[in-house]
Write a protein that binds this DNA or RNA. Structure first.
Lengths: 340, 340
DNA sequence: ACAGATTTGGCAACCGGTTGACAAGCGCCG
DNA sequence: CGGCGCTTGTCAACCGGTTGCCAAATCTGT
């Protein structure tokens, strides 16, 4: 562009199929076919072309390829908050599955805001072949609108607006309620996450049902930021609820709650049992080590991408989701209910 | 392609500058100019074009734009291990800075392997305008080779091969050694990270110098995986060293060490003081809360991207790196040396 | 009112691949 | 030996923008 002439050959930039064509003595389109459509070209020519390509260290320009095909071999993973440990597993699983399929993963953060998320998706959408919406703060119809334009898979976000991958909370919650009931707890509290969090609603629903089925009392405590601070801030309200065991929306909040409780001089679990969700990094490290309902988020990330690829026709079969069952991990933050 | 005819208008796909041109009654090139070169076109025409663009909800196709310009407005962040909490801050800072400049960030994982890292860079390089190599396992000359083709900024990886952003370990380490000396420790141990880690070498060097300057004994303990397990596995060797305070290469290892020590019945810090590096999530949560040398990785990530953009001519000035000083965070894992 | 300077917009080439249509080359069979 | 079908490679259009060059239109100054 800026530099006229001097284009072909010897430039620092990558070799093109034209360079290869010249070197192998064929037409550029033959090069394209040889490299992408096995069998379309005679074995001899193909070998000659491949050798030339190797010699020139040829790598097809992804943009040039994307233009006519409309496919970029890139996937987007949109997250509410990159620094929330919950998403680490998601990122790793998604990255792995994407890389395995020869796709590149772009990470975009929506900073826990629906508006930012919409803008982010808007920005990233034209450049990717599909989108994984994890921990979305968007309304169903907004997701539907996006899904109408690009393949979309949501994580932890049920509903009909799009394909979805979610760990099945039931088994873990059933085990949890049994565990707490066995310890003698009669009144539970659920420390809810953000009001618009589908996951929080779902966990609450399952917990409520399981608790009622066992004749336990259970209350939901306000909506809170899904962070360590959010958990700490809710401590007073947890005490006020009269519950002997608190189930936090996620591990982060449970951790904040543990710290606040201990800072207030309460013993965990002797005075108050605390449970989290997700089994994030650090859950086993905190004292007392956190009892939590684990979901294999790495697997969830992998499934989400596999599912997305399937949606794009690229995929094999959408993998079996039975593996995504949750399980209870009992550690030290739950104990017998205090005798009053 | 597959669908002949029917191209223009009404298609689900995005509007093009040709659609806008038609609607505004001008030439496509005029549309391009109006949208990208303010002032190059009369105000009246520009207004007409912008309105048409809005009505059509036009978004320029990034690939089509990238082709002639060679610029994709995408940056790559290459990490050894996405799930290492150390990188969270890096990711967030980089993502933020990139988004602020209108760039998209792609994350690629090298799984702690130089070979995988090289392949990853190879794969991703053609599609990005610049690369941030964090925690690189590559040799200097390999990095040099990459830097010759694309702008590269490394994080925590000194040397002349490329631009680099690293927290300055000196202040934090000086404070740490003073802190330990004041507590009466006379023999320290440094629990090294991977053998090929530039950061580990650097931390050891600074620590050694600071300790010797104060007349303290200090030993380096083998090379270890930079993980919780790696720290735990090294516990026996730490005890054998006779040191009363162990400085681990990073927080993860320090955490593993704390757990192993406590499991072995030792009290931390009464019997053994333990220190980490980075102040990752969880450092404050573990019992005893970890004393650590904090580096603001989020800022480092931001700087790395800013620096990279500057390298690409996009940037303003490479920001002042003085802010990247490390500092000592004293918590509960360090205490007076045991009297023998 | 007119020559000359300055805007403004159009034309067309180009970025680097992909692909439908087609023709030349070839073996096979009757 | 000619016709037939199959393989192999070429041509050229196209994806959706960007930009150098030029001509038409508009604005100056006198």
């Amino acid at each position: 562009m800026t530099e006229p002439g001097q284009r072909r050959s010897g430039r620092a930039g990558a070799a093109t199929i034209y360079d290869i064509a010249e070197r192998a003595g064929v037409n550029p389109s033959t090069v394209s076919r040889a490299l992408n459509h096995p069998g379309r070209v005679s074995a001899a020519t193909e070998a000659r072309i491949r050798q030339a390509a190797d010699e020139l260290d040829f790598h097809a320009n992804p943009m040039a390829r994307a233009l006519p095909t409309g496919r970029t071999r890139t996937l987007a993973l949109v997250l509410a908050d990159v620094t929330n440990p919950v998403v680490f597993g998601l990122i790793r699983g998604a990255e792995r599955a994407a890389a395995a399929a020869g796709y590149t993963l772009v990470i975009a953060e929506s900073q826990e805001s629906g508006a930012v998320e919409a803008a982010t998706v808007e920005r990233v959408a034209p450049a990717v072949d599909g989108i994984v919406l994890a921990t979305s703060r968007l309304a169903d119809d907004e997701i539907g609108a996006i899904a109408a334009r690009k393949p979309v898979v949501t994580v932890n976000r049920g509903g009909s607006a799009s394909a979805n991958v979610s760990p099945d909370v039931e088994p873990g919650i059933a085990a949890l309620v049994t565990h707490l009931a066995d310890l003698g707890h009669r009144t539970l509290a659920f420390l809810a996450g953000p009001a618009d969090s589908w996951t929080s609603t779902r966990r609450w629903g399952a917990l409520y049902a399981a608790a009622r089925a066992r004749g336990l009392h259970i209350v939901e405590i306000g909506s809170n930021a899904p962070t360590v601070e959010g958990g700490g801030d809710a401590y007073e309200r947890c005490e006020a609820s009269g519950a002997t065991a608190v189930v936090a929306y996620n591990d982060l909040m449970a951790m904040g709650l543990i710290q606040a409780a201990r800072a207030a001089g309460r013993r965990v679990p002797a005075d108050l049992s605390i449970v989290g969700f997700d089994d994030i990094f650090g859950a086993a490290l905190i004292t007392p080590a956190l009892t939590t309902v684990r979901a294999d988020l790495e697997l969830a990330g992998e499934h989400a991408v596999t599912h997305l690829l399937a949606l794009m026709g690229e995929g094999d079969a959408p993998a079996d989701c039975a593996e995504l069952a949750t399980e209870l991990v009992v550690r030290d933050s739950t104990g017998p209910a205090p005798t009053r």
